[in-house]
């Protein structure tokens, strides 16, 4: 077992984990945060996307021990009592970007990481750039148009 200390959704925690444990299993099975979805489990679908130190990553291909000293944000970390939904989530609702909802946490986390990066650089991405930012997230319901509309609307105002 290896000891790791990291921040998850703002809270600092220390855990004993098996070296081969994947981040997705740490998040879902140990921490009981079930919003992060297991899809293909081989890095194709993006349903398990979470944010580590500001970057979206696939938690199914990331060793839990490698979040040691880092900050992890999952879909549960986006809202609080005063603002239950992040701006990205609100846009998904407004634009009807959710059908079955399985891909939604991954879509939201990828868009959150990308939009935070763009805001930091003062960039408003083009629709093509927004599409490219979501290239690692599959959706089998919506046909993508409404998800891309929602992701683009994040940059309004």
């Amino acid at each position: 077992m290896m000891q790791i200390t990291f921040k998850i959704n703002g809270e600092s925690i220390t855990q004993e984990v098996k070296p081969a444990l994947l981040l997705i299993d740490l998040i879902r099975d140990h921490l009981k945060l079930k919003g992060t979805k297991p899809g293909c489990l081989e890095g194709e679908c993006g349903a398990c996307s979470v944010i580590v130190d500001g970057e979206a990553i696939n938690s199914c291909m990331y060793l839990a021990i490698n979040v040691n000293g880092k900050e992890v944000i999952t879909i549960e970390g986006l809202g609080d009592h005063e603002n239950p939904l992040d701006n990205v989530q609100e846009k998904m609702v407004e634009h009807g970007g959710v059908q079955c909802g399985f891909c939604t946490p991954g879509m939201v986390m990828t868009t959150k990481a990308y939009s935070d990066k763009c805001k930091k650089k003062g960039i408003t991405p083009t629709r093509e750039e927004v599409k490219k930012s979501l290239e690692g997230n599959l959706c089998r319901c919506t046909g993508y148009a409404k998800i891309i509309d929602a992701a683009e609307a994040v940059y309004e105002n």
Partner: peptide, 9 residues
């Protein structure tokens, strides 16, 4: 190469 999530690592 691949996608954002993979390029990041």
């Amino acid at each position: 190469l691949a996608c954002t999530q993979i390029r990041n690592v």
